[in-house]
Amino acid sequence: MTQTNWELIHDAASGSSTAKRSLDAVMKRAWPAVYAYIRASGRRSEEATELTQAFLCDVFLARRLLDKADESRGRFRTLLLGAVRNHLADVHRRATAAIRKPKEGLIALDAHESPLGTASAASSSPERAFNTRYVAELIRSASDRLHRELEAEGMPETWEIFRVRVLHAAFQGEAPPYEAIAARLGLTKGACAVRLLIAKRRFATILMEELRATITDPADLSNEVTDLLSLLNAE
């Protein structure tokens, strides 16, 4: 059973014996999307790595965002996105202030000159990178779990059919013909199709479970899927 992000967040902030493990789990889930946002905001990879680490340390640890996280705020994705957007704007503001600070005192920052814009009006490109990576990580996590479960249950051929027909076809290009997979595995096409159905259903269950773990209200799942699809489709 997937622990919800909120369960992990509360445990991470609780100081319990499992707090460190929960914190690691939250950071692991958060890292790729945060890094993608920072990278898409124009930072080089080394700088983006440092800023991601700084964000996770400064915001998740030093400012105890986990402790303050409020379930009523709904979606972990929007909490994380808002936090990294504000953090990056703060970093930029501090850096710009240090450069511009004249002898006679601090001048106001002009939002128009900021490559990041304001905290509430960040560029759409970093947001798209964040959301894309966020979905990619959910899918990666779900497929890893499906692989582990099918292997543990002695169903490696079911995993192989899913890997080739679904993951490879979707993310790496054309899959080999169905007949070729069936022949290689010594199965009929119908038997392959049934195994693929089983795997797709399991994957769908796991992926939706992972997604439900990031929202407070289970009834909000449909809205979250709709929003993510809209964000992925946005040009």
Binding site: I139, A204, L207, M208, L229, L232, N233
Partner: peptide, 15 residues
């Protein structure tokens, strides 16, 4: 992005 969206969409529909 289209592939990610397709995977998310059919997973939701299967569920």
């Amino acid at each position: 992005r289209r592939s990610l969206g397709d995977t998310l969409r059919w997973s939701f529909e299967f569920d």
